[in-house]
Nucleic acid binder design. Structure first.
Lengths: 189, 189
DNA sequence: GATCGAAGTGGAGATAGTTTCCACTTTCGA
DNA sequence: TCGAAAGTGGAAACTATCTCCACTTCGATC
């Protein structure tokens, strides 16, 4: 999907990078619904250029989201290789909350987008889900986690956390959800 | 918020009712992003009338959502009065999944709206959360549910379920989340 | 280091969706 | 029955999105 078959011209690459950088900055501050037109100006390119690189708002978010997800997946892999499976899972999930906490704006943007059912973030989501699936499978293997509830359920819970970023007591409640999920997973079936 | 201080004229009431009825029907079938203009025509009123009654899309959803929530809260109260607290909570949560399952379109509409942070559904949400809070408090009292995780966490999880209605294996995963939450809540602290 | 085709650009204007506004119609109390 | 207040509807103004193409820039080739 990253279409590496077409080597972009140097200036085009620069523009693309500038757009992504600006997008990250804007999403980070949370105002996702900036006019597309204005955004182009902000990044110092014309609307046409913006549209060529990212035909939709989703495509832009996807691009920003991409490295984010890659980093998280790496982390998951690393945890799985260095900790007992159940601990790795717990650490990863708690880490996700930390991550959403520090990248609040981005988390909110993502949640908004997913809820509008765009499906453009499918790739990233699947990668993340795969990471969780692997962590859980290892823990099941190890015998420390039940096998009758799948990774999908955990993803739903994570998503719920991300989508609720405006709750006044977000952090505590998010931690609560993770606690429930982890203890629920440990429960002997 | 229901502004009962102003008795609506008979015809206005009829129009309002027609709008809500049509809205329920439309949301139920899932196409939330019908043009506001067209929707007015569908309900047999002019755009102006639609806008007067419901200045925003959210207001319209709120109106539809309202009875829905009232019914759910009643159910919660009833369960609390007729079952042991822990069971009442479990039954209520499982029932929520059923409800979202049968009213898929509405659930999706709500999720979309909440994610866009409109805040217009705050009232309904709060009522629902209060119901969950009560159920949980009773169960804590009873000693069957831990007291270090609040209702907010459960709401987040529920929200995650509602927002993920497009997953192919939705029902099973939704049940999984509820299982984790319930078992997590039971876990002795 | 000059030339030329391909790749890329930007913004004017077409398109699509939202909201306001107000001349007209309907209701209902006196 | 009549008049004032409430309500209506849809045309017109406004806002945001997206397309299109005349022009510019790049970089491979000689």
């Amino acid at each position: 999907m990253s279409t590496p078959g077409k080597p972009l011209r140097a200036d085009a690459q620069r523009n693309r990078a500038a757009l992504i950088a600006k997008a990250r900055e804007v999403f980070e501050t949370g105002n996702f619904d900036l006019r597309f037109d204005d955004f182009a100006r902000l990044a110092g390119v014309g609307t046409g250029t913006l549209y060529r690189h990212f035909p939709t708002r989703e495509a832009l978010v996807e691009a920003v989201y991409h490295e984010e997800v890659a980093a998280l997946c790496d982390r998951a892999r690393h945890l799985r290789d260095t900790l007992p499976a159940a601990e790795a899972l717990a650490t990863f999930l708690r880490g996700m909350v930390d991550h959403m906490d520090t990248h609040e704006g981005l988390a909110r943007t993502l949640a908004t987008l997913m809820a509008s059912g765009s499906g453009a973030l499918a790739e990233g989501s699947r990668a993340l889900e795969q990471a969780v699936t692997d962590l859980m499978a290892a823990a099941v293997q190890e015998g420390t986690v039940r096998d009758d509830v799948g990774a999908g359920a955990v993803m739903m819970a994570l998503h719920g956390i991300g989508a609720a970023h405006d709750r006044p007591d977000w952090r505590a409640e998010a931690d609560g959800v993770i606690t429930l999920v982890l203890d629920g997973l440990l429960a002997v079936r």
